[in-house]
Amino acid sequence: MKSAAFWGALAAIFAAGLALTGAVANEYYYNALYLILQAALMAIAWNILGGFTGYVNFGSAGFFAIGAYTTVALNKALGLPLPLLILAGGAVGGLVGLGLGYLTLRLKGVYFAIATLAMAIVIETLVINWSYVGGAKGTYILTPEKHLWFDSYIQMLFVVMLLLTLAAVAISRMLSSSRIGRGLAAIRDDEVAAECAGVPTLRLKLVSTTVMGAMMGVAGAPFPFFVTFVDPSSAFNLFIAVNAIAMPMIGGTAHWLGPVIGALLVGTTQEIVKVTVSSEMNVLIVGVMLVVFITLAPQGIVGLARKHLRRRKP
C-alpha cells in the first residue's frame, strides 16, 4: 500500500468515526464498536511480538489489566486526566514487557510463553491482595462529567479508542517495513542466521516486548471508564488473551494488516452472536475459529488472499 493512500485511509476512517458521533445517538453501537476496537488494538499489539518476532504471549490479559489498574490507582490517588492515564498505562505495560523479556528471552522461546501465562496469574494475585484498588471485590469508577463536545462519555471513549487503534496500525506498519521490522522477521525466521547477519537479537526482542506491553497497557487504560466497575475477573479475563491470539492468527500474522482484518472479522462476528445467540456462544466461537484456522490455514486470511492472487496472475 502506498504511503499517501495509507495515511489517507487512516484520516478517512477517523473522519468517518467523528461523523458517526454526529449522526447516531444510540449508545449500544458505541459500546460494540469500542469492544471491537479494543480487541483490534490488543491484536495489533500481540502481533508485534507474536507475528513479527515469532514469540507467543499468552498473558495479554495481564498486560491489559496492568493498564486498567494503573488507571484505577492513579485516578484514585491523583485524579489525572484520561490522556495522562493512557500514557501511564502504556509506560507501566512497557516496563513490565521489558522486564519479562529480559528475564526469559535469553532462554528458549517456549519459556517466554509459559512465563507470560504465569505472569498474568501473579499480577492477578497481586491485585487480589491489593485492597487500595478494590482487591478481589473490585471497585467502582466514576465517569467524569466532562466529555468535550460529544453527546455522551461513551462517544468520546469510542473516538479516543479509534484514535489509539489507528495510531497502533500506523506504528505496526512502520515497524514492519523498517530496518527494525526486517531484523524482527529475521529473528522469527531463523534466530541463529539472524545473529550471524549482525542482528542484535536480544535488544530487538526487548524492543518488541516493550512495544507490545506498552500498547496493551494503553488498550487497558480507558477500560475502567468504559465498564465503570473493575474487578480482577473482568480485567484479567482469559477471553481477552484468547482474542489477542486468535485475531492475528485468523487474519494472518506475517503482515501488519492481518490482526486488523482478524479483529474486524472476529470482533464483528462476536458482537452479532452476542445479540442473536448468547454471550457464552460468542466466547466458544473464537476458540473454535482459532483452532480451525491454525490447523487448516496457518497463514491466515492474508495468506489465503496472497495464494489466491498468485494463482490468478500466472
Binding site: 515469532g54 507467543v56 510463553a113 482459532l290 491454525i294
Partner: peptide, 10 residues
C-alpha cells in the same frame, strides 16, 4: 513454535 502453541491454547 507459534501455531502449535496457539493450538493448545485454543
Amino acid at each position: 513454535s507459534l501455531s502449535g502453541l496457539a493450538f493448545f491454547f485454543g
